[in-house]
Design a protein around this nucleic acid. Structure first.
Lengths: 349, 349
DNA sequence: CTGAAAGCGCTTACAG
DNA sequence: CTGAAAGCGCTTACAG
């Protein structure tokens, strides 16, 4: 009903002081929860604040040196449930710490990422947990670090960056899932998804290759396909693969989202994942359990990684960003129903 | 390598002015992109800024009356992909507007919601898009509005709140999906999920009831079951229903997430959704397509709703929050494979 | 416990 | 185009 001009344009600590009949120092003390103020005085001030609709002005406070209470959470793809789970894990620990996490989504754009990080710095964020967009430059991370901003890299390492890292054991996970396929009898196995520049992809391919070499096989470059790490990207890449003559009998997918896109491409061709071709994922998102057939994948516990990242950030903020820590979470094989042995009739030479 | 104390603690507009050999007014003009500054001067200032690692101090600027460039996006459940899609739609339009959206997750906690909204106000957010937590009080929304803060309610209306609203046509959607079940021959239909206090649930139940009454049936209170709008909550509620004697032949679920929980409860009992019992969802999240069998549901286009909400917020910020708008998005029936006719042998009297 | 004073980093008129 | 001055709302010593 009213028509005030702008939020927080009016009532200040001085108005409160006048209303409560104290000095503004006292109001400030109440704001900070100081024990120096008498209970009766504190009550009077609190009542004045709610009566006048007072809003604390963080900007003014930060200006004078107060600790800001926000931390940034910069996520490269919020539509991927894996990152949503990560975000929720982060919030779980930050919630009890007095910090409020502000999330921003970059949708894999480094330009957007720079904007968002800048905005968070401008607003006085105490630290940032960054799940970096593709093609993030290590030097950018380092210059942030040099300015004294605590940064925790999550999920994706950035070559050349000196920041702390929380990620999962991509190499071991990929090796395990590949070994599983080999034990089912597969010899002609593709790796699909992710872009060439991604460190995570390199690590998973290293595990994949290592598992093959352990049994005297080698990775066929013609079966290592890139795609954007999205359902659509994977669908397209898999459809292209299926239009070629010599199919693999199994596909190790970059992650669950990619695996789901790959399954859709198979279905489109009338093929059934888990019967006509073995498919594996990575991440063990809730979707992995819900697709049909349920996806054999690698569990990395995104929520736990989020918690670790938040704890690490809190430590760095407290310590003043001196140390660099690394936490590599376990990557467990989760066998469900998306993997069959290779079909006899299509066995290759 | 360095050891600066805190981010943004040092270099200010004055340092830049000195470095570039101009006055600080000029630096401020450059910061605002004013055309009054000569190109050569602008360059000199820009170089000085990057040389010294300057970070704009939003707090100080806002203090003096500058427009803040953040808007808040407060989401009640980020782990529900529906809300992730909503968030992404919001970002899509905000991205081109110069505003940076900061997202916060309340996990259905009104306490958390109050904290988060307060923090956003303290940081000078220009407006907030709020997907309210359960049990949000209309008076809280109204007092925010009275302070001049533009607020757009998204997805869930709040009884008593005077804020603008972007939501979907819950009543029509629920009626459509119920009519679909009736046309398949169902007469004994349950409604499952959501908590009693939720306005959205009330609207959907109204559509459900109306569709039944159109054909001379009435909703059986024993078949209207509450649950938290989560997979686990739905699983529990459905399991309880299945332990009772007279099952329904079809279940209209509060949303897709609930439907998936219901399906899992059926599977646990050895029953197949779409063969032994008809199940419907609401929202048409990407998961609805991926579950097995694919879910018959109501499509509400979360991304589009997000875009509408963002456009509405931008309008309100520009206009100074005078008008109250409402946008109700269409709710289309999407028929997939989770609905069968009622089984003959279990047909009730 | 309270008051007076200084200053954080910026923007905004107002003269030049 | 540029400089000098005032002031936004808070916190921080410093006296009392």
């Amino acid at each position: 009903m009213t028509g005030k001009r702008r939020a927080s344009t009016n009532v200040t600590i001085i108005d409160i002081a006048r209303e409560a009949g104290v000095s503004k120092s006292t109001v400030s003390l109440v704001l900070k929860g100081s024990t120096l103020v008498a209970d009766e005085t504190r009550d009077r001030v609190s009542r004045a604040m709610s009566k006048l609709g007072y809003v604390y002005n963080r900007g003014a406070a930060n200006l004078r040196g107060a600790q800001s209470s926000i931390v940034g959470m910069v996520i490269n793809d919020l539509s991927n449930p894996f990152f949503a789970e990560l975000a929720i894990g982060i919030e779980r620990v930050l919630r009890t710490s007095g910090y409020i996490p502000f999330i921003a989504n970059t949708a894999e754009s480094v330009v957007r990422q720079a904007e968002v990080v800048r905005s968070m710095r401008e607003h006085g964020a105490s630290g940032i947990i960054l799940s970096p967009a593709l093609d993030t430059d290590g030097r950018e991370i380092n210059s942030l670090l040099d300015l004294g901003m605590p940064i925790i890299l999550a999920i994706r390492r950035v070559p050349g960056a000196r920041a702390s890292l929380v990620a999962s054991d991509n190499m071991a996970g990929a090796a395990r899932v590949t070994q599983h396929l080999i034990s089912l009898g597969h010899r002609r196995i593709a790796f699909l998804g992710g872009m060439g520049a991604m460190a995570v992809r390199k690590d998973r391919i290293a595990g994949f290759t290592q598992a093959l070499e352990e049994v005297g096989l080698r990775a066929d470059p013609a079966l290592m396909l890139e795609s954007m790490p999205t359902k659509d990207g994977a669908f397209t890449a898999m459809s292209a693969l299926l239009s070629r003559p010599d199919w693999p009998t199994a596909v190790v997918c970059f992650n669950d989202v990619v695996a789901i896109g790959v399954m859709q491409a198979l279905s489109r061709k009338g093929l059934l994942p888990g019967r006509d071709m073995a498919i594996t994922g990575f991440d063990d998102t809730t979707e992995a359990r819900q697709v049909s057939p349920p996806l054999t994948t690698v569990s990395v516990d995104a929520g736990d990684l989020g918690e670790r990242a938040a704890q690490m950030l809190l430590r760095q903020i407290a310590a003043g960003n001196q140390t660099t820590e690394t936490y590599i979470g376990e990557a467990r094989l989760v066998v469900r129903e998306s993997c069959c042995p290779p079909p006899r009739e299509r066995k290759v030479s």
